[in-house]
Each structure stands twice: as structure tokens, then as C-alpha cells.
């Protein structure tokens, strides 16, 4: 089972697709959640997800915007998609019928 932050990183990586790397994932998470994402938390989570086989990372090309430094690009694997889907379904299932989920549904309706 994924952790909350791991799920956020996977979601951001899927949204960004081929532009998923450290800085863009941080920015995406900050935009989606309104919370600042610590660099240390992001990189250690990327390592953990890679060790679990949920993502692949590789070093990309250097760009002038980054002072000529390379990016650590991220791609979600099939196993990662399955894990994220399972996490989402579990959260949805366990949340069914609880007050905050009901409020959300009525608000959305």
C-alpha cells in the first residue's frame, strides 16, 4: 500500500508525463495541495518508489535554465499505475458513507 505522499508524487508524475522531474514535481504538488514540498522528502520518496519498481528515473540533458545541470527525469511504470489505482480505490471505498465524504458528494452535486 502506498503512503499519501507517495501517491501525490505518482499523481504529479502522471500529470506531468514527459516533463516529470524534481523541480516540476515539486511545483505540481505545491499547486495541487497548496503545501510546500520539501526537496528531501521528494528525493527520498523518489528513491523509495524506484526501489519498489513503481517509477523509473534517469538523468536527462542539461539546460541553461538550470545552470547547465541535468534533470532527474521520472516515469511511472505499469506497477506504479496499478499501485496508485489500488490506493485511490481503497481510499474511495473506506471513505464511503463517512461524513466528510458525504459532504463532498453533496457539495459536488
Amino acid at each position: 500500500m502506498l503512503g499519501e505522499f507517495e501517491y501525490l508524487v505518482l499523481t504529479a508524475a502522471v500529470r506531468l508525463n514527459s516533463a516529470a522531474y524534481g523541480a516540476s514535481i515539486r511545483s505540481e504538488i505545491a499547486t495541487l495541495t497548496g503545501r510546500v514540498c520539501a526537496l528531501g522528502a521528494l528525493y527520498t520518496t523518489l528513491d523509495r518508489l524506484e526501489a519498489k519498481g513503481l517509477i523509473e528515473t534517469w538523468m536527462g540533458d542539461a539546460t541553461p535554465l538550470r545552470g547547465g545541470r541535468a534533470k532527474r527525469l521520472v516515469r511511472i511504470t505499469g506497477k506504479g499505475i496499478a499501485a496508485a489505482k489500488s490506493f485511490y480505490e481503497t481510499v474511495e471505498r473506506v471513505s464511503h458513507g463517512v461524513s466528510w465524504a458525504g459532504n463532498r458528494e453533496s457539495a459536488m452535486a
Partner: peptide, 13 residues
């Protein structure tokens, strides 16, 4: 590698 990526991310941000 990670040093490069981290410094690049900081500069980009």
C-alpha cells in the same frame, strides 16, 4: 548525479 539534479532544481525554482 543527484548533486547535479538537486542544484539544478534549486536554480530552476
Amino acid at each position: 548525479d543527484e548533486r547535479d539534479a538537486v542544484l539544478g532544481d534549486l536554480l530552476e525554482s
